[in-house]
């Protein structure tokens, strides 16, 4: 009998996402270099590779020279 409080993996597979923005926000706390990558696939063909490299920080840390 299925337990409504414990989803089986097969049932849960349509589940939640974890995305870049979440991680970026976490690193914003310190200011940090992040990298991400993504293929833009056009009509089934890998056309453009996007390598994202960014130094992210918040204004208060930038002003204090902590970036």
């Amino acid at each position: 009998m299925p337990d409504p409080q414990l989803l089986s993996p097969r049932h849960a597979l349509s589940g939640s996402d974890r995305t870049l923005v979440d991680l970026v926000d976490r690193v914003l706390d310190r200011g940090c270099v992040i990298e991400g990558e993504l293929w833009l696939t056009v009509a089934g063909i890998d056309l453009v590779y996007l390598g994202l490299k960014a130094v992210l920080t918040t204004p208060d840390r930038l002003l204090r020279g902590e970036a």
Binding site: D17, L20, V21, L23, V24, G36, E37, L38
Partner: peptide
């Protein structure tokens, strides 16, 4: 709204 999360690989889903 859920369609708008871009999955950027290493930092994305696990």
């Amino acid at each position: 709204p859920g369609d708008l999360s871009l999955d950027l690989g290493p930092l994305g889903r696990s």
